[in-house]
Design a protein around this nucleic acid. Structure first.
Length: 423
RNA sequence: GGAGAGUUGACCGAGCGGCCGAAGGUGACAGUCUUGAAAACUGUUGAGGCGUGACCCGCCUCCGCGGGUUCGAAUCCCGCACUCUCCGCCA
């Protein structure tokens, strides 16, 4: 949720934000109206309530007829107070609901526009010229099947489309990537966490995932719980309602979890292999920091992601996502995209967002500052996922169907230097 | 699944329907003492919001959450969530 005081004092900033995101700027005026209505109703209630309390104190002291007279007066007032309170509560709920529909204000420098209007920040490493190496390019699924690493058919049999089994070396490779990711995060100062993947509605809502993209999320109706699409949700909820001490720097966590996504809006997209699936694993970095440090923290996240990509010897580029493609919580988002040889395109493998105080405001996560308690900023970013296997298999494929193993992964694979096809 | 106990401020913990935003303690902060520190002593110290309100000031809300009774609820009643203990079931 954005700061209502900011909205009142500089509504134009918020209108501009809505326009940049491709959202409706008139919501701003509706929020302002609802906010004004709320404050008016609140005033009325509070005045009446103050009178009621003051009479109440006299009642306690009065005796006999005087007491009866006071009681008669305040009885009528009590009913009115109750009505006014209901009105004020309703007005507050309406204002908050409207305000919550506003996305975060993009950072200066974020490109305007939609999904295709990103700017490329940099490109690191060069895709191999596989044809020149005499390699008949295979996609990750063909390679994975050759290694007996991926089993889509049985995934579908057991769970349906977009489900899979990682088998044998595939399972080991995923563990290796995630372990290396966790190690990289650990070295960057993140504290490892194994997190719940089922969360309460208020936590899911607090992270901003129940807005426009709510139908992307699995929900267990009987238990009123949501399956998380990233451990960001649990890690953001971890300190909800708390007042933190950030005097020693940001609180940094690295969460390892299964992630669940309905992929409701992506029918027909990335249907082959494990690029886009309903369930995968991810190590996610998350930090709570001071708002003034958030941009620097965000840069640090990106740097850590790049270190991991470089260690895995993957060619990649970094894009600065356009306003319209930001999640509702994000003020800025950098994606790292690895090269995908089979499709000759870039594929998102990490995404890091600076959510400024947007999530913390909803989740009531604050820090005690000299001039009172202020919401903290939250930053999140990917350091490794199952999808990375796609990039690894394709970029490190060799003519005989085997796959080169980057040295950083070898300790997690019993020293294996090459993954050999199973015949 | 059954039975019982509980949920109060950063933490522990007391709380009679009005004098309770809440005793007491711990912690934190400031001061006295000390060459310095510790100890001791003194003081300060919950959150959110409204009022054109940064400071001062006034008011409202918050004692797990939601509702009810009452002129008035941390205190009484109902529902829900969570925690703990015991029993059962499963692994």
């Amino acid at each position: 949720m954005i700061d209502l005081k900011l909205l009142r004092s500089t509504p134009d900033v918020v209108r501009a934000s809505q326009v940049a995101r491709g959202d409706d700027p008139s919501v701003v005026d509706r929020v302002l109206a609802a906010d004004a209505a709320h404050r008016a109703a609140l005033q009325e209630f509070e005045t009446a309530r103050a009178e009621q309390k003051s009479i109440g104190k006299d009642v306690a002291r009065a005796q006999g007829e005087e007491k009866q007279a006071l009681l008669a007066r305040t009885k009528a007032l009590a009913a009115r107070v109750k009505e006014l309170q209901a009105g004020a509560d309703a007005a507050a709920a309406q204002a908050v609901e409207l305000a919550r529909s506003l996305g975060n204000i993009p950072e200066p420098g974020v490109p305007a526009g939609g999904e295709d209007d990103y700017t490329v920040v940099k490109t690191v490493g060069a895709p191999r010229d596989l044809a020149a190496e005499g390699i008949d390019v295979q996609d990750h699924l063909a390679i994975g099947e050759g290694l007996k690493a991926i089993d889509m058919e049985r995934g579908a049999k057991v769970s349906g489309a977009r489900f899979y089994f990682l088998t044998g070396i595939g399972a080991r490779l995923e563990l290796a990537v995630l372990n290396a990711a966790m190690q990289t995060a650990l070295e960057a100062g993140f504290s490892p966490m194994m997190t719940p993947t089922l969360v309460r509605p208020e936590v899911m809502a607090g992270t901003g995932f129940l807005g426009k993209h709510a139908d992307e999320i699995y929900r267990l109706e009987r238990d009123d719980l949501y399956l998380t699409g990233t451990s960001e949700v649990a890690l953001a909820g971890y300190h909800s309602g708390e007042i933190l001490d950030l005097a020693d720097g940001p609180l940094r966590y690295a969460g390892w979890s299964a992630c669940y996504r309905r992929e409701a809006g992506s029918a027909g997209r990335d249907t082959r292999g494990i690029i886009r699936v309903h369930q995968f694993h991810k190590v996610e970095m998350f930090s709570y920091c001071r708002p003034e440090d958030a941009a620097a923290e965000h840069a640090r996240f990106l740097e850590t992601e790049e270190r991991m990509l470089q260690a895995l010897e993957l060619p990649y580029r970094v894009i600065d996502t356009a306003a319209g493609d930001l999640g509702s919580s994000a003020a800025r988002k950098f994606d790292c995209e690895a090269w995908l040889p089979s499709q000759e395109r870039w594929m998102e493998v990490t995404s890091t967002s600076n959510c400024t105080t947007f999530q913390a405001r909803r989740l009531a996560i604050r820090e005690r500052r000299e001039d009172g308690n202020e919401p903290v900023a939250t930053v999140n970013g990917t350091i490794g996922t199952t999808r990375w296997l796609v990039a690894l298999l394709e970029n490190h494929q060799q003519a005989d169907g085997s796959v080169h193993v980057p040295p950083v992964l070898r300790p997690y694979l019993g020293g294996l230097e090459v993954l050999e096809p199973v015949r």
